[in-house]
């Protein structure tokens, strides 16, 4: 049997084991004796709130996923719509960041002067939690949706900027010399030699960024509200609908995985062996 097959079997075993434990631990208590009239009046027949078992989460997931795009008002939208809002914000902020980070990273990587001049700014701005920008963004932009996008922008920019600068700065001198001895112009050197040479490092930065952006959007949407998967999680918490909370947590994981996979595929295309 191949390793992959055995690993797959083992994964399934672990999955069912965990689901089984979860299911077993979250059964409603047996009604051991008939409730007295007083208990009935006091609501004693209601189950106490508990984490729903996987069977009920899966049933809920099936219901949600069979109609993901329904829209029944501001507080009741399908999971597909919520995720679409989140992805839209993430991609907008992310590509805006890429548009600035990659060219700027090029400049920083190619010019030791710019590197030294800009490094202190990067070092101070980078460790700031993206959500710390939120109040300032709300005040300046005066729009919660755009503020969320700005927060994604600011958190995606650093890994891309730093990786691009690093990738460009560490392009092998031999390759640059090849460009020089072939009398390539600065622009052609940048596009035909430095960009492909640094592309794997740049893509690594882009991959880190999309991961962080997806982490941050959930928190940002919990703050700004309205729409999006982060808002959805918080809203369902307020509704005490733990089925939906658990389901949306899983969906966040799945979408994050797909985003990473997409970037990973692009990274494979630009990867080269030395």
């Amino acid at each position: 049997m191949s390793l992959n097959f055995r690993a797959g079997v083992l994964s399934l075993v672990i999955l069912f084991l965990l689901l089984g434990i979860w299911e077993a631990l979250n059964q409603p208590p047996d009604a051991s004796k008939a409730l007295s009239e007083f208990e009935l009046l006091m609501g004693g027949s209601d189950q106490e709130a508990r984490v729903p078992p996987p069977s009920s989460v899966l049933k809920h997931a099936y219901d949600e996923l069979s109609n993901p795009f329904y829209d029944a008002g501001p507080n009741d939208k399908g999971i597909g719509i919520q995720i679409a809002y989140s992805i839209y914000r993430v991609l907008l902020g992310y590509f805006a960041a890429a548009l600035i980070a990659i060219p700027l990273g090029f400049v920083i990587g190619m010019s030791p002067l710019m590197y030294r001049a800009l490094n202190p700014f990067i070092q101070v701005l980078r460790p700031i939690s993206p959500l710390a920008w939120m109040p300032l963004a709300l005040f300046i932009i005066k729009d919660s949706e755009q503020s969320a996008i700005f927060v994604i922008f600011i958190c995606s920019i650093w890994p891309m900027l730093i990786n691009t600068a690093f990738g460009v700065a560490s392009v092998r001198t031999d390759w640059v010399r090849v460009a020089q001895t072939h009398e390539l112009s600065q622009l052609k050197t940048a596009f035909q030699v430095i960009l492909p040479a640094a592309a794997p490092t740049i893509l690594t930065g882009m991959r880190i960024s999309i991961g962080i952006a997806w982490l941050v959007i959930v928190a940002a949407e919990m703050l700004v509200g309205g729409t999006g998967i982060g808002y959805y999680v918080w809203n369902e918490w307020n509704n005490l609908d733990l089925n939906s909370v658990i389901f949306s947590i899983l969906m966040i994981g799945v979408v994050g995985m797909i985003l990473d996979f997409a970037l990973g595929t692009v990274a494979k295309i630009v990867q080269y062996e030395e």
């Binding site: 031999d174 390759w175 010399r177 090849v178 001895t181 030699v193 492909p196 040479a197 592309a199 630009v270 080269y272 062996e273 030395e274």
Partner: peptide, 11 residues
């Protein structure tokens, strides 16, 4: 120029 380490562009 032919460099010692070939200096071909690997991509």
């Amino acid at each position: 120029v032919v460099f010692q380490n070939y200096s071909l562009l690997p991509w």
